[in-house]
Structure formats: C-alpha cells, structure tokens
C-alpha cells in the first residue's frame, strides 16, 4: 500500500508545514511548480475550497442547525478523523506504538445507516479508504449522525457510549482498542 501519487497534473510544493497550514488558514497562496496552466483553477476553485473546508470542519451552531449541512459536516469529520488515525498511526511516535499492536485486517468505522470508512492495516501500516466496509475484521459503529457528531466534538465519552449501546464494537476488539488509543491523539493534531 502506498500513500500519495507518483503522477500529477498540478504540483503544489510547500517549504514547510507552517506554509501548508498557512494555505489552510488562507494566509498563504500556493504557487504550483507544475501545472501553471491550471492557475485559474487554483485561484478560483482550490483556494475557495480550502475556505469551505474551514466552514465544514469548524462549523458554527447556526450552520449546524441545517440538517443537510449537519450531515455533510459530520461526514467530512468522520473521514478526516479516519484519515488522521491512519496518519498518526504511521507517523506519530506514540501512535506507531499503538499501530504495532494492531493485526492485519480492515476496521470499519461507520455511522449506522450512514457514511463509513475503512482503516486498513497491513504489517502495522495504516491506510484509510473513504467508503463503507462490505466485510471487516473489526467494527466500531456509531448509533447515528447526532451521536457521532457529539463524539467528534468531544462532548461525550466513547467508553460511556459503549455501555449505553450507542457505540457498537465487534470483531477483533484488540484492533478497535488500539485504534481508539490513536483516536485519543487526533485532538492533539486537529483541535
């Protein structure tokens, strides 16, 4: 499994993590080193898209009152967290400790009757696929979008939710356990 692309139409290099974060924050305009002919796309589409990212990821209460927006925002958060879990498991020193205890297989992280992601583990390397799992070796399923959102926003505790049945776990629990340990570290990076 490999992350990233070897061929691309546009290449946006960043000299530092701070510069990348600046693009997300809207303080840095990216200059492509390849695909300059697509500059219009960058300026008219890509940069505004990063602004929208902020709107969905740091949603206001007002925006969240719209059920359609709520679902889209929560879905985006699910995917972001699932991808973050994989990156932290692969890169963060303590995340790697958790990852080395996870056996191979697919972990389904999903919202009942809603979106889902697969965290695929192979030789302790993790990759997130943004689609529901047809089969899995372990599962962590949230009762509904509202509960998932409350969990993602840190308003409720996952362990308590398992007791109430609002979070269903099954299969190789040791996989779920260790993914949860990495999940605990997501807030360090994405808060």
């Amino acid at each position: 499994m490999e992350d990233g692309l070897s061929n691309c139409d546009i290449l946006l290099p960043f000299s530092s993590c701070e510069k990348f974060n600046g693009m997300i924050d809207g303080t840095v305009t990216p200059i492509p080193s390849k695909g300059f002919q697509h500059i219009k796309f960058l300026l008219k589409c890509f940069v505004p898209l990063t602004d929208l990212l902020t709107k969905y990821m740091r949603a206001s209460e007002e925006d969240l009152a719209d059920p359609v927006f709520f679902d889209k925002s929560t879905t985006l958060m699910l995917y972001t967290i699932a991808v973050a879990i994989a990156q932290i498991g692969n890169q963060d020193q303590i995340g790697k400790f958790s990852a080395h205890l996870i056996p191979d297989g697919d972990i389904s992280v999903c919202i009942k009757d809603g979106p889902g992601a697969i965290i695929r583990v192979e030789d302790h390397h993790m990759l997130t696929l943004k689609k529901p799992a047809a089969t899995y070796r372990a599962i962590m399923e949230f009762r509904d979008m509202k509960l998932a959102r409350a969990l993602f926003d840190g308003k409720i505790n996952a362990v308590a939710c398992i007791g109430t049945g609002d979070i269903r776990m099954g299969g190789m629990i040791s996989m779920v356990d260790n993914v949860n340990r990495i999940l605990d570290r997501v807030a360090l990076y994405l808060a």
Binding site: V159, I162, G163, T164, G165, R168, M169, G170, I173
Partner: peptide
C-alpha cells in the same frame, strides 16, 4: 467502569 462493565468487559452486544 473497568473489567466488570460493558466496555472493558466486552459485552457484545450490550
């Protein structure tokens, strides 16, 4: 909480 509870006790399903 703990091993006698539904989370650590792996009550599947609760």
């Amino acid at each position: 909480y703990g091993h006698l509870g539904p989370a650590e006790g792996c009550f599947i399903p609760v």
